[in-house]
Design a protein around this nucleic acid. Structure first.
Length: 233
DNA sequence: CGCCTTTGACCGGCGC
DNA sequence: GCGCCGGTCAAAGGCG
């Protein structure tokens, strides 16, 4: 896919700036229209990015886009959790919480569509719950997740992964797989599972940031991911 | 032989 | 304190 234009680096994808009232629900403030080299344009809705059909239909491109989004997150915000709200097959949105809430259970419920008000979930938690969350709060890597319509579980995001575990989680028919980046000194992990309601959808959750370029770069320095990463930083 | 997946065991957090 | 659950470990086996 040819790039029509490039992202203005000064836009600061995840800069916390003049958040419109209607977006102050935990979502990052995105520019209204994002154009990703080689991936095409993504219009922004109050809920996140609306992926063009060509992009939404391509799992690899979606994975690359998600990686790009995390790559462009300012350091101070990477300290927070960044999760993806799954509003639909073509919607990719990232959610910020004010604390590093390590509550996979919440995310999992989000993924299963059991909650419609994800923003309120994080912003309106009870004091008791917050206390418990803080108690279990640890220094964790930034993470985000997204879903993709795909026949294959592992999307080609340009990195090389090694599977280190598989688990059947409660109330799901499909096992969850755990992967680690094979690169030395890279502690990035990802989880892959199928959406309970729609097994055609793959839920991919990334944790951490790669300290290296995608493995494809070793063979081809002109890959989209390389361009994107170099572009943002 | 090296790298990978598989899979049961183990561990720690959490709710009751 | 106990049991459940998710996440990780590590041994074993497969594959190129």
């Amino acid at each position: 896919m040819a790039a029509t234009s490039q992202v203005n680096p000064n836009q600061g994808l995840f800069e916390e700036q003049e958040m419109p009232a209607h977006q102050q629900t935990g979502f990052f403030s995105f520019p209204p229209l994002m154009t990703f080299p080689q991936l095409g344009s993504c219009h922004q809705s109050p809920k996140g990015f609306i992926l063009p059909p060509s992009l939404a239909a391509d799992p690899s491109s979606t994975a690359n886009l998600a990686e790009t989004l995390l790559s462009s997150t300012p350091h101070k915000q990477r300290e927070d959790s960044t999760t993806c709200n799954l509003g639909g097959p073509n919607l990719l949105s990232l959610q910020r919480s004010s604390a590093n809430l390590w509550a996979w259970g919440d995310i999992n419920e989000c993924l299963r569509g059991k909650r419609s008000d994800i923003g309120d979930d994080h912003l309106g938690v009870s004091a008791v719950k917050m206390k418990k969350i803080k108690a279990r709060r640890k220094v964790r890597e930034p993470r985000f997740c997204f879903k993709t319509l795909s026949d294959v579980d592992v999307l080609d995001d340009g990195y090389k992964w090694r599977k280190y575990g598989q688990k059947v989680v409660k109330n799901t028919q499909h096992p969850r797989s755990y992967y680690r980046c094979t690169q030395d000194n890279c502690r990035v992990k990802k989880r892959v599972e199928r959406l309970a309601e729609d097994p055609r959808m793959v839920i991919t959750t990334y944790e951490g940031r790669h300290a290296h370029s995608p493995s494809h770069d070793l063979e081809d320095s002109q890959t989209p991911s390389s361009q994107l990463n170099n572009f943002f930083f």
